[in-house]
Simulated scan of single mutants.
Amino acid sequence: MALTQIAAAKCFGGQQLVCEHDSDACGVTMRFGLYLPPQAEHGPCPAITWLSGLTCTEQNFITKAGAQRAAAELGVILVAPDTSPRGPNVADAPDGAYDLGLGAGFYVNATAQPYAAHYHMERYVAEELPMVLAAHFPLDRRRHGLSGHSMGGHGALTLHLKYPDIFRSVSAFAPIVAPAQVPWGQKAFSAYLGRDPEVWADHDATALVTRQPTDAAILIDQGSDDPFLTEQLRPDLFAAACEAAGQSLTLRHQPGYDHSYYFVASFIDDHLRHHLAAWQRR
Rank of each mutant, 00 (worst) to 15 (best):
residue 198 E to Q: 14
residue 243 E to Y: 03
residue 94 P to R: 02
residue 38 P to D: 02
residue 7 A to P: 05
residue 191 A to R: 12
residue 216 A to G: 03
residue 117 A to G: 03
residue 202 D to L: 12
residue 124 Y to K: 05
residue 203 H to W: 14
residue 124 Y to G: 07
residue 82 D to P: 07
residue 206 T to P: 01
residue 265 A to R: 13
residue 240 A to M: 03
residue 136 H to Y: 05
residue 140 D to R: 11
residue 69 R to M: 10
residue 182 V to A: 07
residue 28 V to S: 05
residue 74 L to H: 01
residue 79 V to N: 13
residue 122 E to G: 05
residue 108 V to E: 09
residue 218 I to C: 02
residue 16 Q to I: 15
residue 162 K to Y: 00
residue 93 A to G: 07
residue 183 P to G: 04
residue 223 G to H: 09
residue 254 Q to P: 02
residue 45 C to D: 13
residue 85 P to H: 10
residue 117 A to V: 06
residue 211 R to M: 11
residue 156 A to T: 13
residue 172 A to D: 11
residue 36 L to F: 04
residue 113 Q to G: 05
residue 182 V to M: 08
residue 245 A to I: 00
residue 257 Y to M: 09
residue 141 R to E: 14
residue 96 G to C: 07
residue 275 H to F: 00
residue 54 L to H: 05
residue 118 H to E: 13
residue 4 T to P: 04
residue 2 A to M: 06
residue 127 E to T: 14
residue 114 P to Q: 03
residue 49 T to E: 00
residue 149 H to N: 12
residue 229 L to T: 06
residue 272 L to K: 01
residue 195 R to T: 15
residue 154 H to T: 09
residue 177 V to P: 04
residue 205 A to L: 00
residue 102 L to D: 07
residue 264 V to K: 04
residue 84 S to G: 11
residue 181 Q to Y: 06
residue 258 D to K: 09
residue 17 L to G: 06
residue 2 A to H: 05
residue 115 Y to Q: 02
residue 192 Y to F: 14
residue 267 F to C: 09
residue 29 T to E: 15
residue 64 K to Y: 11
residue 131 M to H: 08
residue 82 D to E: 15
residue 198 E to H: 03
residue 139 L to E: 11
residue 173 F to R: 03
residue 169 S to R: 00
residue 66 G to H: 06
residue 209 V to D: 00
residue 280 Q to G: 04
residue 159 L to T: 12
residue 244 A to W: 00
residue 274 H to Y: 02
residue 259 H to P: 05
residue 195 R to F: 04
residue 114 P to L: 02
residue 162 K to Q: 15
residue 83 T to A: 14
residue 121 M to D: 01
residue 214 T to Y: 00
residue 37 P to Y: 09
residue 195 R to K: 12
residue 215 D to Y: 00
residue 188 A to D: 02
residue 234 R to T: 08
residue 235 P to L: 14
residue 99 D to T: 08
residue 30 M to C: 09
residue 188 A to K: 10
residue 89 N to R: 11
residue 80 A to R: 06
residue 277 A to D: 12
residue 272 L to C: 04
residue 166 I to C: 10
residue 86 R to P: 03
residue 31 R to N: 07
residue 212 Q to N: 14
residue 76 V to N: 07
residue 68 Q to M: 14
residue 127 E to F: 07
residue 238 F to W: 02
residue 33 G to D: 03
residue 230 T to W: 04
residue 215 D to I: 02
residue 159 L to F: 08
residue 246 G to I: 05
residue 31 R to C: 11
residue 191 A to T: 10
residue 156 A to S: 15
residue 102 L to K: 06
residue 159 L to H: 09
residue 144 H to D: 06
residue 50 W to M: 15
residue 247 Q to V: 05
residue 182 V to Q: 10
residue 94 P to E: 08
residue 209 V to C: 08
residue 81 P to N: 01
residue 95 D to C: 09
residue 25 A to N: 07
residue 198 E to F: 01
residue 275 H to A: 00
residue 40 A to L: 10
residue 189 F to G: 06
residue 151 M to E: 05
residue 90 V to K: 10
residue 196 D to V: 14
residue 232 Q to S: 12
residue 94 P to F: 03
residue 62 I to G: 04
residue 207 A to K: 00
residue 107 Y to D: 14
residue 257 Y to K: 07
residue 170 V to P: 00
residue 243 E to P: 03
residue 13 G to Y: 06
residue 121 M to Y: 04
residue 175 P to T: 10
residue 219 L to N: 03
residue 146 L to R: 01
residue 76 V to K: 09
